[in-house]
Structures are given as C-alpha cells and as structure tokens.
Design a binder for these strands. Sequence first.
DNA 1: GAGTGGTCTAGACCACTGT
DNA 2: CAGTGGTCTAGACCACTCC
Lengths: 264, 264
Amino acid sequence: MATKYDRIAADLRRKIQQGELPPGAQMPVETVLLREYRVSLATLRRALDQLAAEGLIHKQHGRGTFVRTPRQRLRRTSTRHQWEKDRARLPIGERFGTGSAERDTGLQMGDFDFSAEYFPDAVADEDLAEAFGIPVGTRLLERTYRTVLKAEESPLGLGRSFLIYDMIAVNPELLDASSEPWPGGTQNQLYTIGIELDRIEERVISRPPSLEEAESLRIDPGVAVFALRKVSIDTTGRVVEVADSIFGGDRTELHYVIQLERWK
Amino acid sequence: MATKYDRIAADLRRKIQQGELPPGAQMPVETVLLREYRVSLATLRRALDQLAAEGLIHKQHGRGTFVRTPRQRLRRTSTRHQWEKDRARLPIGERFGTGSAERDTGLQMGDFDFSAEYFPDAVADEDLAEAFGIPVGTRLLERTYRTVLKAEESPLGLGRSFLIYDMIAVNPELLDASSEPWPGGTQNQLYTIGIELDRIEERVISRPPSLEEAESLRIDPGVAVFALRKVSIDTTGRVVEVADSIFGGDRTELHYVIQLERWK
DNA sequence: GAGTGGTCTAGACCACTGT
DNA sequence: CAGTGGTCTAGACCACTCC
C-alpha cells in the first residue's frame, strides 16, 4: 500500500491539475484538511511539503497556502552569450534598453528591478584563485546582483561576479556601482578595456539552497537550486571573469545549443 | 534562535566534514542520537533528512545510516558530442573500447554495466510529436538505457531515446537491441544511414524524482534530479533524435563550453 | 529474533500576518 | 486579536535486513 501522505498528496495534486483548486487560490487551511482526511498533522504536513517541493503550492507562514501560478520556467539560453558579444561593440544607443535577461524572458527593461552592489576590496580565496589561475589573495572586484521581476515577489536569480581588479582598473567607470545597469553587459565593459571573449564555460550543479538563498529566492522547503559557475575566457586564453549564479530549481530551465563542426 | 533540527544537522555536518564520522562509517543509530541530543524522534529525523538531501549521508531501511563517500560528481561535458561526431566515421576498431560516458568519467569500458532495451513499437505522444515536428502517433523506436558503475550500487543515470522508425529502418541492425553497446554511439548509428548532425540542443530542468526514479537511482528523500532533454538536429534541419536523461542531482555536474565567434 | 529506519498519532505551544 | 503555518513532544506500531 502506498503511504497515507502519498495518497493525500496525489489527491490534492489531482485537484490542482484538474482546476478544482485553481492557480492563485488559497488551499484549504490545515484544520480543514485534517478533518477532511482524518489524519494527524505530521502526516498532512508531509503531503503538503511534497507538493511544495514540486512547486505546485506555496506556503506562507501566517498567511496561508496557495496554489502556484503554473509559472513558465524562466529560460536561460546559452546563445545569450553570442548575442551579447555581437552587441558589445555597438554604439550606446543600440545597446541600451534590453539586455540578455530581457532577451531570454521576452520582457522589457522596465519589467525588472535590477540591483547591484560593488565590493572593490575582495580578494581571491582558494576556490577563486584556482578558477582564475592566479595567486590566493589577488585583489578582485566583486559584484553582487539580484534580478527581480516587478510583477513577482521573488527574484529570478542571485549572482556574484568576480573580475581581476588590476585588469579592469584602467577604466575607473567599471569600478563604480552607480553605472549599473551597464548597457551591453559585462562583455561591453570588457570591450572598453580591449578584451574580447573567446569562449564561456559553464558548470551546473544541483543542491539544496542555503538558508539565505532559500529566503531571498522565496524557495519552499525541498526545492533544490541550480548553482551555475560561468567562466569567461578571452582570446589570449586568460580567465577574465568568474561568476556564480543561483536559480530556483522549480522556476528555471537551462537551454544549451552545441554547434557541431561539419565533416570534411 | 535557529531551530533544534538546524543545530543538530549543523553539529552532525561538522562531525562529518571534520572526519570524526569518516566516509563509509555508520552513523550512530537513531536511539543513540535521541539520547545524545535529547529530542523527539520527529526532530531528529528532520535533521537527518536535511543531511540526506545534501547527499552527506545515505539512509538504508533496516541496515542503518551511513556517511556517504564524498563521491566525485560525475561530469557530463558538452564537448562529448563533438568528440563523438569526430569518431563516428572511424573504422570499427578505433571506435571500439570507449564511448562518451567513459570519456567524461575517465573510466574504462569494463567498469560499466550498460544495459539497453528496445521498443520498436513506440508511438509519438503529443510531447514527442512537438519535439520532432511530426504527427502524433508516428511510429518510433524507443530505447531505454541504464548505465551502472560496477564499483557502485546505483546507476549513474537513466535514459530514454527516441528515433523515427521509418527513418532508421533502412538499416535493420539499428532495430536490434543485441547490437548494444554500439561502438561509436548514436552518431555512428546515424552515420550508417547517411545522417550527419548539425547541432544538439539541451534543455535542463530540476525537479523531485518520481517514485521509480528515486528507487532506481537510489536517491535519498529530498534530493532533486536533473532532467535533461537532448534534441539532435541533422544538417538538413530535421530533428533525428530526442533523448531524455535523468541524473541524480547530488552526483552530477553538467559542463558546457560555449564557443564564441571572433569579432571581424 | 534483534536491530534498524519508516509511518503515524494526538496533542502542546510558538511565530508570523492581517485586522 | 483571530487565524494561519512552524516547531516539537512522547509515544505506538510497521517494514526491512541480517544473523
């Protein structure tokens, strides 16, 4: 026999998928469900936690439990990098207005709240030193990003980017957080100091969110995150940027195109 | 104040990371931990479930709870596709011996148990029909794979691949499961019927495992899986293969290289 | 059969949100 | 303050593994 919590979860899942409990609706409160299913609180909560891990419902302490709008997963494409490179040398007027996040989501600049903080006194720890191929303790510019969709409460993703301080300091504008959001993105910033990217390497793992990540991404218990490390390598083979991003696992879809060389 | 289960989980995590509870060792049994931390069973189990979700421990009903060997995450690279394409036209002797899974892991053919099942009477459902761009009901060859590392209990991944039946039937060998593992992989199989791939598109999401997936991948409660859909497109623009793979989220690392075009 | 983890109960009390 | 979900307890009984 399947467990009680499995059967309760399956029953509620069916009610959601068949529209009996429509998107946005408040779920019956725990006391009602307890009466309805005649189980103990622990059993009921286990069933609800299962649905929350699937991203079907969203529990809010003190407010209630709600059916999630079947949110389109945010698509993050690998072609964004070539697209960004193509625009990096355009005049500012053409760079302005939309960035790669807008391209991926099909939304406009104004739909986003985009906030960045700059920390010009970061230093490379062991992990970053290895990723860059530089000595531990090298001075870095650290930038943290948080991209929030105005229509929603929770950020799409969190990001931390690292650049080698001495490499970029030749353009003081790049050290200044008030220039954000920079039209054309990082690849244009690098272009202003004569750097062209050759390739980008991305490494993706899945893991449970940290406490802070779960909080700021408004992740329900049980939902994993994508942790993505992007390493940008320029045409001379140097690592010029290392960036770590976190995306909610229930809201994100990663999309990669691998172009193959023709047979001769 | 942090919760009790958070403090217990943090304490045990520290003991594991500091080597007090070494990899492979059995964790103290629940009754001991209950005495040690003076909490109720539900609280203790919540702490242990948290560690299991992180992949630090592995619970086995009836046997005990064990510290996981800090297993290297299996790296699955995007360059494997180009590598496989380069080998697709080599004579059989050179194709034999190692495939792309071996290349990614650095292991030899003999380290794997590789099993495949063929279902020549599959038909395209709505989802597959859309992915292929063919009518619903079109006949497909479905192949399911399970790659098991002999040194470990659990499979590295599960896979289901779909090919259009009429497209590949011109080479009857391709319809025969007993030819597996086919030296040179799917790209060589396609080469035998005159198909060259132009590009591969991969779509990755994270979600909780189904009951069957959790069972066959030996996934602990709370660990998410990567669900990867690979779509292969040939030089004429046709979709020639659609393959879905499932990887344990705590054991897998996806690696992508995005090569950029030079500025002119 | 002894020992392990898995399910489940019936409660108590706490913390957060809104009015 | 009323109403919601979050934490926690002290038990009972079940299911699986191994000797």
